[in-house]
């Protein structure tokens, strides 16, 4: 019972914050629309629109009404899923973005796996051998990677690994003729579903470098956080007690030190999942991948204002939802919260 109440309290708080954030985001986007210079109806209808078309749009968006009414009708349209219409694709922005979202989620998911798979072992070794050669080199690497612009790293690695050494494809999501029937929109998943393993590895081959670039940005933070947290835990008394039992270094690190230092890393990786979606805009376009980042990039280039602002609204929403899901997942996997729950049940 207690556990249930603790869970539902936690859930309603997080849900409340997420809704509040979405409302804040919507208000910001409305402010952005109002900040745009020039005639809003003209912008929404496109440069080539006739006077009649512009008037129709003005009518539809209620632009003659007072600003406060416009704000409410804007919120109403958002609730119905209307993010505006792209003047380039002539499609609703939401429909455009939904199509490419799986591709971005796939990129972010693989980047997150790479991020954790590299940063966590590196953090463990660096902390256990504090002051050693590995510690020093990995800390320098983290500082360097953390200061590099992602899009530049992408360009340079694309040139070196893709053009000069030719170990990875230069761009795209799959080789010509390798496309699987679209089910989810994520090439690797679609290939798996079609049981086409050739296409699956081809898609993986295409995604590895973009995902690695995205991961590199975030891995430096995970590395630093885990290392600092682990250094604190390694100094604690119970680690000495574990050593006194005759545990090997590996056993001590994996069974005791790591579980006790993972909490800040879990919290950080939660925020990172959202931030990675935002950073996709820097990577997708360099590698000519589909995705919400690339869509927004193109919208900026083509001065498609409503597509840009619709993307901001959409990406912000996805980030909020991902953060919410990660928060809930954390409650389920975090041993500390679980232990506390078990504790309140046991007594």
């Amino acid at each position: 019972m207690l556990a249930f109440r603790a869970y539902s309290w936690f859930l309603s708080r997080r849900l409340g914050l997420a809704l509040l954030t979405l409302w804040g985001l919507a208000s910001l986007v409305f402010l952005m629309i109002k900040l745009m210079p020039g005639d809003e109806a003209q912008m929404a209808a496109g440069a080539d629109a006739s006077a009649a078309q512009i008037e129709a749009v003005r009518e539809r968006l209620g632009l003659d009404a007072p600003v406060i009414m416009q704000y409410f009708s804007f919120l109403g349209r958002l609730l119905r899923g209307d993010l505006g219409t792209s003047i380039v694709t002539l499609q609703p922005v939401l429909a455009d973005l939904e199509k490419v979202l799986p591709s971005t989620l796939e990129l972010v998911f693989i980047a997150m796996l790479l991020n954790l798979a590299v940063a966590i072992p590196a953090g463990i070794v660096a902390a256990y051998r504090q002051g050693g050669v590995f510690d020093a080199t990995s800390r320098i690497t983290a500082v360097m990677l953390g200061g590099m612009p992602a899009f530049w790293l992408a360009l340079v690695l694309q040139y070196v690994l893709g053009s000069v050494w030719r170990v990875v494809p230069i761009s795209g999501q799959q080789s010509y003729g390798m496309a699987s029937p679209i089910v989810t929109g994520a090439p690797t998943l679609d290939a798996l579903m079609a049981l086409n393993f050739g296409a699956f590895f081809d898609a993986l081959h295409h995604i590895i470098l973009p995902a690695a670039v995205l991961a590199a940005l975030f891995a430096t933070q995970i590395f630093r956080t885990l290392r600092a947290s682990l250094l604190g835990v390694l100094r604690s008394d119970f680690i000495m007690a574990v050593r006194a039992k005759g545990a090997t270094a590996r056993h001590m690190l994996v069974r005791h030190a790591l579980p006790n230092s993972l909490n800040p890393v879990l919290t950080l990786s939660g925020t990172q999942a959202g931030a990675m979606i935002g950073s996709a805009v820097l990577v997708e376009t360099v590698f000519a991948r589909q995705g919400i980042g690339a869509y927004m990039f193109n919208a900026v280039a083509q001065k498609d204002a409503f597509a840009v602002l619709g993307s901001v609204m959409f990406i912000g929403t996805v980030v909020c939802l991902v953060n919410l899901v990660v928060d809930i997942l954390q409650l389920l996997v975090d041993p500390r919260i679980r232990a506390a729950q078990l504790g309140s049940q046991g007594q």
Partner: peptide, 8 residues
């Protein structure tokens, strides 16, 4: 803090 700063 919850919103992606660069995107906004």
């Amino acid at each position: 803090l919850a919103l992606p700063g660069m995107i906004v």
